[in-house]
């Protein structure tokens, strides 16, 4: 039963990146139910601390579970351990790339002056890409440009 509820909550799409689910992103930490028919407690990890999508995610989880017959749902935000881009599943990475967003590189943040593995262009696959800005339309993304196909693209930045 709880497995089914976890699958339902995990299938909720991200409000800002609807091509990936909460399970793909690795933000769903646990779904618990003390007893059959009892209240359900969902633990959700925020991605970036200021990300306004967290509140929408919580509301979407509550609405989904209520629609499947759970009358009382509590969504708790948990910070510990902090969410990392390495928590995104292989499936999540594939879906991001397919939607034109370069997935984060494994291993965490990469900064100026440090050797960095390339970020391949999600459109043409060229590794000849450069950072235009470390900040883009949402907190979790950076803006890059591909020198081969000349297209700008978003890159989910590592953390």
């Amino acid at each position: 039963m709880v497995t089914r509820l976890a699958a339902l909550a995990g299938a909720v799409p991200d409000p800002e990146l609807p091509m990936v689910t909460l399970a793909d992103l690795g933000v769903l930490r646990s779904v618990r139910r003390g007893h059959e028919e009892g209240p359900v407690v969902v633990e959700l990890a925020p991605t970036w601390l200021g990300c306004p999508a967290v509140e929408t995610m919580a509301e979407d989880i509550r609405r989904t579970l209520r629609a499947h017959g759970v009358p009382e749902v509590t969504v708790r935000t948990v910070l510990d351990p902090p969410w990392r881009t390495d928590d995104i599943t292989a499936e999540g990475r594939r879906k991001l790339a397919a939607a034109g967003i370069a997935p984060p590189r494994a291993g965490g943040p990469v900064f100026v002056g440090l050797p960095a593995p390339p970020v391949p262009c999600p459109r043409c696959g060229s590794t000849d890409t450069t950072v235009l800005s470390r900040f883009s339309g949402t907190l979790c993304r950076a803006l890059r440009r591909c020198a081969a196909c000349r297209e700008p693209f978003d890159h989910m930045k590592e953390r």
Binding site: L49, L79, D80, P82, G108, P109, R159
Partner: peptide
């Protein structure tokens, strides 16, 4: 500790 650990990569950016 938990808030600081979570915000640490953000402060690095």
């Amino acid at each position: 500790a938990a808030i600081a650990a979570h915000a640490a990569p953000e402060t690095r950016y």
